[in-house]
């Protein structure tokens, strides 16, 4: 939303020297579109850049928390399931809960763009 306000301002100041001929205005807007495109292409991380900065921040905030919680839940659930099947109650739960914690940290680091994605290494070695 903040971006939009800024854009509006930019448009206003751009429109102020309204005496400029249509050709000049056309080249101006082409340059601005090209700049916007270039910015869109330098795309980093997993989340899109098209959202406004507020949307992006909220989106990643919601994401980071749930990524961590989900991994811990899956780890704990998996450990409990293994324990139920093998009858080794506390041990599988403890070990896999810790592994789930580690996976949660990995998920968060990945969502924040600090660790390469799992898919990136499939082509490392033939």
């Amino acid at each position: 939303m903040a971006d939009k306000g800024k854009q509006d301002n930019g448009e206003k100041t751009g429109a102020e020297p309204g005496i400029a001929g249509p050709d000049k205005r056309f080249s101006e807007i082409s340059a601005r579109i090209a700049a916007e495109r270039r910015q869109a292409e330098t795309f980093q991380g997993e989340t899109g850049r098209r959202t406004s900065s507020l949307g992006k921040t909220w989106g990643s905030a919601f994401r980071l928390g749930s990524e961590f919680v989900a991994a811990v839940l899956v780890g704990g659930g998996l450990g409990y399931l293994i324990d139920r099947l093998l009858g080794t109650l506390p041990f599988g739960l403890i070990i896999l809960l810790l592994a789930g914690f580690a996976a949660g940290i990995l998920n968060m680091a990945r969502a924040a763009g600090r660790v390469p994605k799992a898919g990136d290494r499939m082509n490392d070695e033939p």
Binding site: R63, A70, G104, A118
Partner: peptide, 11 residues
């Protein structure tokens, strides 16, 4: 990595 993959649908 397996837990991380399985946690995707959950999250």
């Amino acid at each position: 990595e397996v837990i991380s993959f399985l946690s995707r649908p959950v999250s």
